[in-house]
Design a protein around this nucleic acid. Structure first.
Lengths: 230, 230
DNA sequence: AACCTGTCAAGAGCACTGCTCTCGAATTGG
DNA sequence: CCAATTCGAGAGCAGTGCTCTTGACAGGTT
């Protein structure tokens, strides 16, 4: 099957090339990139693209999926590179990695976390990769609880219905995780997403030159809220 | 000028009708609504639309601007309806109003706070209306400080560069507003945006049936962070 | 070496888009 | 009443996603 694998290899290279060019177009055209333009850049007929991707949405889905994986990898790698016991530094590393990836790949970030493409429905394959970044951050909180470095907030803070909802999720993530703590971890993730989005989508005030420091401080606020020891 | 005003009135009605139909299409097609489809719904030729809006982007800009105003009005009205001295309740009212407006007008919210439309650049007219919702919330914090109900966080929390940046902004908003307090108010606004976006863009998914309560709790967390008295 | 068979690129074509221009028709102000 | 302005409709251009057909090529088999 060596001969067949040659053909398969050429095909794989072609797919990679299409994705690379499409990613480049993504940076300028966003979600409405043109298949024909990609084909033009590759010097091929637009119809030839359909040999490799059944539709434009399918190409987009592939890019989205790979972007989720890339972001997840970046956050996880940053977390892994820090002393496991230094929870606060792990939190900072994970959040900073997410922001750095977003700033380096703004179009892909917009594709993941911007407004959903109208006709487009995310297939099920994307939900698991999409959960990885937040789960990595929640994992830091979980470790802190397990290590006794973190005292959970009073459960009375949580209204009963939310406590029940979150208790189910918490149990599936990590046995013994208090709902109130999970709520604060989710708040941290929400804040991270908001911070990056505001910065990337240009809705941040003009007079904020020291964005890195601002980001760090806002992230520190959430670390305090979660209870990560200084 | 009565005769002229007849034509002007018809024209104004026509513009309103176009905007209304466009808003309806926005709900299904998002940012890539079709001028031709709008024209079809109105029973007119597509070229006729150009008598009223110079381009599709211009129509979108009008919708965006009016959406900002609507959201700003909703938040302000909710804030105004609450006893001025009950800061926490004002915070809740403002945040809930923003969420309610977003849930009622998801497409418009996506247009305002989703990923920016690729080729589209927001004109200057939009920045002032865009600032109204966050400024209303910051105003609550300012009032709390002025009334002495709110003790500002220690300035040492803020790294020097951020303190300087925020001090400039704070001074332009309200004299005497501490930078550290402004930072927390901005964190609250960021969190609000993140919460609404996650809920609206479907990234919260299953396992959280009591969304209202969840939202309230997350907002309460930020109220605590800001220091709004219970 | 000759012969199928599956794969591929290309072209034509359909329905759609934003936008421009022109041409009559209607309305308005003088 | 007439000239000037405004308006709607139609044709047309360049672009889009996508489908279908046609012809060329390489793979493995006989």
């Amino acid at each position: 099957m060596v001969a067949n694998s040659l053909r398969a290899r050429v095909r794989a290279e072609m797919i990679d090339e299409i994705k690379a060019v499409a990613r480049r177009h993504l940076a300028t055209d966003g979600a409405n990139l043109s298949l024909r333009a990609v084909a033009r850049d590759l010097g091929m007929a637009s119809s030839a693209i359909y040999r490799y991707f059944p539709s434009r949405d399918d190409l987009l889905t592939t890019l989205i999926l790979e972007a989720y994986v890339a972001l997840g990898d970046a956050v996880e790698a940053a977390d892994d590179a820090v002393d496991r016991d230094d929870l606060r530094e792990r939190w900072f590393a994970g959040c900073r990695a997410a922001r750095a990836w977003a700033l380096a790949n703004p179009a892909e970030y917009a594709l993941l976390y911007g407004s959903p493409v109208p006709g487009y429905a995310a297939p099920d394959d994307t939900v698991e990769p999409a959960m990885r970044p937040p789960l990595t951050l929640i994992g830091i909180v979980r470790d802190g609880l397990a290590a006794g470095q973190l005292t959970p907030p009073p459960a009375a803070d949580l209204p009963q219905p939310v406590r029940d909802d979150l208790a189910d999720i918490a149990a599936s993530l990590s046995p013994g995780m208090p709902a109130a703590l999970l709520a604060r971890g989710m708040a941290g993730w929400t804040q991270l997403f908001g911070l990056i989005s505001f910065e990337l989508f240009g809705r941040i005030k003009g007079g904020l030159p020291h964005r890195d420091d601002y980001f760090d401080h806002q992230i520190a606020l959430m670390a305090d809220l979660i209870g990560l020891p200084r």
